[in-house]
Design a binder for these strands. Structure first.
Length: 243
DNA sequence: CCGGTTGTTCAGCG
DNA sequence: GCGCTGAACAACCG
């Protein structure tokens, strides 16, 4: 479910409910979800992996974490964390985190850090990286304050695509590789979006979960790399280490 | 059937 | 107060 492009897909799927009134709310969330009953949905927004349901004067943040899922006009066997009923249709969320945001979402979120956003600002991302030069590339890509929406799959694929070793220090990257890192974080995310829409995402993975490098055929290294200690797949031959 | 994970937060420790 | 570690959450795939 989780990475940013998947949230963009969800946002598109729920468009028919924009402007519609919620006539019933149920779910096992511990939050005061009844606040939404009778309210009209003003808009759906997203910031990275956050899915936002916007009302007058407040918003609800859905985060799918690792296991979250949703159904639109369908139900799963399991109890929904949050179920929104409309005059026509329903949206069901499962195993996700539900939180209320009482501040203006435009104050809470910096849209320029969302790799999927029209407001994405690559220069700002480079500036943030320059302030933490010793950060490893694999950790930097997962930093939601820099690349909101990038997850572990996108991380592995971007680093393979730009031929940079995951344990390279971002401050040691030549200008060209730094540019590639920042620009491909966005470009790959849109590739991910298209592939996901067409159910061919996995087929297009070149590095993530792979055993062999498709460029040079030597075995990939699988390592829980960086501070984030997430699964990292890379080729020591094709991906250069900058230190 | 078990192990592992497209993620994040928080408690506990040194 | 800091960074690090491990736990917790909880569902599905291979």
């Amino acid at each position: 479910m989780p990475e940013g492009p998947s949230i963009v897909i969800l946002k598109a799927l729920v468009q028919p409910f924009k402007g519609k009134k919620i006539i019933d709310v149920t779910g096992n969330s511990k939050m005061d979800i009844q606040r939404m009953a009778g309210q009209k949905i003003i808009d759906f927004k997203s910031w990275g992996k956050h899915f936002l349901i916007c009302f007058n004067h407040f918003a609800v943040r859905i985060h799918f974490m690792l296991f979250g899922s949703y159904r639109i006009n369908e139900q799963k066997e399991t109890k929904p964390r949050l179920s929104l009923q409309f005059k026509k249709g329903e949206i069901n969320f499962y195993a996700c985190s539900v939180q209320f945001i009482d501040e203006d979402v435009n104050e809470v979120y910096d849209w320029t850090s969302d790799v999927m956003s029209d407001s994405w600002d690559a220069e700002k991302a480079k500036l943030k990286l320059s302030e933490q030069p010793q950060t490893l590339a694999c950790d930097a890509l997962l930093d939601q304050q820099v690349f909101s929406g990038v997850g572990n799959i996108i991380k592995n694929e971007v680093l393979f695509r730009i031929k940079v070793h995951p344990e390279s220090e971002v401050g040691a990257l030549p200008a060209e590789q730094l540019d590639d890192l920042v620009s491909q974080a966005r470009i790959y995310s849109f590739d991910f979006l298209e592939w996901k829409k067409n159910y061919v995402l996995k087929k297009n993975w070149l590095a993530h979960t792979k055993k062999t490098c498709p460029r040079c055929n030597i075995p990939f290294i699988k390592k829980y790399a960086g501070k984030t200690k997430r699964r990292t797949f890379f080729c020591t031959n094709c991906q250069e280490l900058y230190k």
